[in-house]
């Protein structure tokens, strides 16, 4: 009974989003089969494209790793975009100011990005813990501030010589670029960094006593504090760590993708990562394939735009449909198993 029901929901979880996506294709006058074909071609069709997909995968993985930490502590870290930007700004500062060999500069950039992100994440945490401001709005406010900061830097002190344009700063010196393989735009270093960080985060959360206490804080703050856990400190810790990890996404975006600071450096990957983590049901091991799929959809979006003349937000619509239908189905599944009411933990 259980098994059959699970299989049913798994089937529906795949079938419903696929059918809904096909309907969207039909609605925008795109041949569904050709669009599906273009999805695989666009994301995995050649080594360059596979590399480009991985290039989107990296910030998604890092942002998702960051979110897993704050979700474990029961927090909605909407400020993740700002944390990515803060990491990118800090890394760009290092890239502009320090001249040294590549390993030294890159290490310094990574450390700077980590610190920049931690500052931004820590601020959201402080607002929550000390200011009593809901972390959703504290994070949003800090996102706006970070966006303002980047625009100010690009138009003002860090503007290109002669022309101040919103296009971005002067490119970094090549010493501050993540190394790439021939013919590929993706840097293997950034891929390794992202996977390594995810493993480290999962290990921290599941295998250390700090991680255990952090998760206890998220599951039941009252019980955790009765048990002697300083929940405020762990909330703050979760924001510091998440900010640092998100800051690394900023570093790779600046040093491995754009090679300079641009206004849209976070690329909306922070918000997209929230959907990834929700789809993974907060289970870390699922993040790798889901983030890869989301990166592939984003890549396919470019192909749909180029080859079929469709709007670039088509991929986003499909990602949204997927997460929404899986979320609703999981709700159905839960209430179909439950006979007794269980009060849900909710916060707003």
């Amino acid at each position: 009974m259980f098994v059959r029901n699970d299989l049913l929901f798994l089937g529906l979880g795949i079938l419903v989003p696929v059918c809904a996506s096909m309907l969207v294709f039909l609605f925008v006058d795109a041949p569904p089969l050709r669009a599906t074909e273009l999805f695989f071609e666009g994301a995995f069709g050649s080594s360059q494209r596979m590399g480009d997909t991985l290039m989107i995968w990296v910030p998604l993985l890092l942002a998702s790793s960051a979110l897993i930490i704050t979700f474990s502590a029961g927090m909605w870290n909407i400020g993740i975009e700002g944390q990515i930007i803060a990491g990118a700004v800090a890394a760009s500062f290092v890239a502009r100011e320090f001249e040294a060999s590549t390993p030294v500069v890159l290490t310094a950039m990574i450390v700077a990005g980590l610190i920049g992100g931690m500052i931004w994440g820590g601020l959201a945490g402080l607002l929550r813990v000390r200011g009593g401001v809901n972390e959703i709005f504290g994070g949003l406010g800090l996102n706006f501030v970070a966006t303002g900061l980047v625009v100010y830097l690009i138009m003002g002190p860090w503007s290109r010589r002669g022309i101040a344009s919103t296009g971005g700063t002067e490119p970094f010196r090549p010493q501050a670029w993540f190394p790439t393989l021939d013919g590929l735009r993706v840097s293997p270093l950034s891929v390794l960094l992202a996977i390594g960080v995810l493993i480290l985060v999962l290990w921290f959360l599941s295998r250390t006593s700090y991680g255990l206490r952090l998760r206890a804080t998220g599951k039941n703050p009252l019980a955790a504090s009765r048990f002697g856990i300083r929940t405020d400190a762990y909330l703050l810790l979760s924001f510091l760590l998440a900010g640092g990890v998100a800051g690394l996404a900023g570093v790779t975006q600046a040093a491995a993708v754009y090679h300079r600071l641009v206004p849209s450096i976070s690329g909306g990957y922070g918000f997209l990562a929230i959907l990834i983590v929700l789809l993974a049901g907060f289970r870390g091991q699922w993040i790798l394939p889901i983030a890869l799929f989301f990166a592939a959809v984003s890549m396919a979006s470019f192909q749909w735009q180029l080859q079929l003349g469709l709007h670039s937000s088509l991929g986003g619509v499909i990602q949204g449909i997927l997460v929404l239908s899986v979320l609703l189905l999981s709700g159905y599944r839960a209430i179909s198993y439950m006979r007794k009411p269980i009060s849900e933990e909710g916060d707003a």
């Binding site: 918000f271 929230i274 937000s313 619509v317 949204g320 997460v323 929404l324």
Partner: peptide, 9 residues
Amino acid sequence: LVLTYFATK
């Protein structure tokens, strides 16, 4: 949040 993303796109 999911609806925000979906509706925006």
